[in-house]
Design a protein around this nucleic acid. Structure first.
Length: 261
DNA sequence: ATGGTCGGTGCCCGA
């Protein structure tokens, strides 16, 4: 089972780039972030005609997440538990059934800038809610893949120019500590497993501004965390870096993994 | 040296 995550930065603008990537990547399950669309406006039929089951959790203008799956989707949960008043569409969870059932959590963690301020407070509060949910997912003892745009640069080696990010919500010590508090519950960082001693990257995001792509001035903020039961099934992982050079690219590239499931 | 990029929306905000 091939599982991928792609922050597409607008489904309307990216429908062709996404469709092209989907046909080349041959994934079974794809979580999307920043669809920037309400559920009713998502081009559901376009993807259903290509053989995808589609579950969305959208809102007007910003944010929005979705799951596309060639496999049956069960037990969909929309929204991150822990705050009934939170109206931002950033979390979707579902079970996909291949040879084995795998619980998929697709997330778009808040950016948090500027710091300090209410947006950073919201980011940290959201991460605390995610920490509570991720503990519940581990306790299920299912194979779980929790993946998406975490908006956290975990380590210095995850940024080409770390100095630039020193005061940024993506790299502040508190953000990184909150990320570690989740990971150290017992999750495996799938991308890092491929090349554990890498001193640079791999990157998953290059800003549209300042020619970041041409300078390879990237960061690693899209992550795939595996429960022990999922890590036991891991056979391959990758970052589709070349997608950043496509026509009308997103600022993120897809990340993916393959499970023996 | 300076200002620089997108997408979605609606004449600006979020990233």
């Amino acid at each position: 089972m091939k599982i991928a995550s792609f922050n597409i930065n607008g489904i309307k603008a990216r429908i062709m780039a996404l469709t092209d990537w989907l046909s080349a990547a041959e994934a079974d399950v794809v979580v999307l972030q920043e669809i920037k669309s309400i559920d009713e406006a998502f081009p559901r039929a376009h993807f259903e005609d290509l053989g995808w089951n589609v579950e969305t959790h959208g809102q007007k203008g910003f944010n929005g997440v979705a799951i596309l799956s060639k496999l049956p989707i069960e037990d969909v949960m929309r929204g991150l538990p822990g705050d009934e008043s939170d109206e931002q569409a950033r979390y979707i969870e579902a079970t996909v059934v291949g040879d084995k059932a795998v619980r998929i959590a697709g997330l778009y963690l808040p950016n948090g800038n500027p710091v300090p301020g209410p947006k950073y407070d919201y980011k940290l509060a959201w991460m605390e809610r995610l920490r509570i949910r991720s503990a519940e997912l581990l306790a299920s003892e299912m194979p779980v893949v929790m993946l998406g745009d975490y908006n956290v640069i975990p380590e210095t080696r995850d940024a080409a120019t770390p100095k630039k990010w020193e005061d940024d919500a993506l790299f502040l010590p508190q953000s990184r500590a909150a990320m570690r508090a989740i990971q150290w519950q017992g999750w495996s960082d799938a991308i890092r497993l491929r090349d554990p001693w890498s001193t640079r990257g791999p990157f998953t995001f290059w800003d549209f501004q300042g020619g970041a792509w041409s300078k390879d001035d990237g960061i690693r903020i899209d992550h795939m965390l595996l429960s022990p039961q999922a890590a036991d099934l891991l056979v391959e992982t990758g970052v589709d870096r070349e997608a950043r050079a496509a026509e009308k690219p997103s600022d993120h590239v897809p990340v993916w993994l393959r499970l023996a499931a």
